[in-house]
Design a protein around this nucleic acid. Structure first.
Lengths: 152, 152
DNA sequence: GCCTAGGTTTACGTTAACGTAAAGTGCTTG
DNA sequence: CAAGCACTTTACGTTAACGTAAACCTAGGC
């Protein structure tokens, strides 16, 4: 009843060329798809990370918006602030007519984020070793207690 | 399985042996060492992540404390909350006399964090590709503008 | 025509992780 | 001994990223 899933029929089909896959999404669909609340999505819009179409009063999201939300959430999982993410997003949008200084600034930011990712990679490796150690010790204690250590 | 390495004996083994390097640290030293404010370090203590010795009123940090702070900050860079970090730290401390249920709970948490790290690894890979794309486009626009694209 | 299920705006509330300011303690140095 | 410096506690302030509640609109089904 609720699930419309793959049913395409968008309300207004343009009489001309059909654009490949004209799928659109409501805020609720995206919300469930990415397991965030509608409030979160609206908040991201308010922060300049999304700019969905409006049909009357209701928001309509296209593929582009969905991708951007996906990237935003990925950035968040990596610990970037919304402000940082927006900075890149805005410059990306302004790229075609961006001046040289803007573009070089963008490259700076990108290099910065790259460095960040590298450090995170190293952190992850180190953290994994720590987890190995802790787990090994835990299992050791468990066996000493005579319990069956659960298989990994 | 894993190595015992550097982490000195948990309970205090020194039956007369000199403790290798008896270095201690003030809060200010640690603060500069890790580029955080003293406030932050005191806050972590208040949150149960550190428990430095007290000489009179002032805190004295040993190697153990320094390591724990390092691990805490690493966890933070990976986006773990202080509460999550504390959860592991506390269980680790309670390990020798921890009961079976506690230990199994610890293993659960560890598996959870592992999964988290795996996802982050994937996120990083994807994000790096995105950065590649954005950078490529930016350089392209730059060359079209006739500017000298700065070397990577 | 009314109900329900979505959507909307507005606005105040909440939590984590500190920042910051005030006021006091303790050593050591000229 | 006064000054300075590093440390301390207490407590209120701040920011990001939403949560939550109230009050409203609108299309579709019975």
């Amino acid at each position: 009843m609720t699930q419309r899933t793959s049913n395409a029929s968008p309300t207004g089909n343009n009489g001309g060329a059909l654009p490949r896959q004209r799928r659109t999404y409501t805020i609720g669909e995206l919300s469930k798809m990415f397991e965030v609340t509608p409030r979160t999505i609206r908040f991201y819009e308010q922060e300049g990370l999304l700019a969905p179409e409006r049909r009357g009063q209701t928001r309509i999201y296209h593929e582009k918006d969905r991708v951007r939300l996906k990237l935003t959430l990925r950035g968040k999982r990596l610990g970037f602030s919304l402000a940082e993410i927006r900075e890149v997003v805005e410059m990306y949008d302004a790229m075609p007519d961006g001046n040289t200084r803007q573009l070089e600034r963008l490259l700076e930011i990108l290099a910065d984020k790259r460095a960040n990712l590298e450090r995170q990679l190293e952190d992850i490796r180190l953290m994994q070793r720590e987890l190995d150690d802790v787990e090994a010790r835990a299992r050791e204690v468990l066996t000493r207690l005579g319990a069956q250590p659960p298989a990994t």
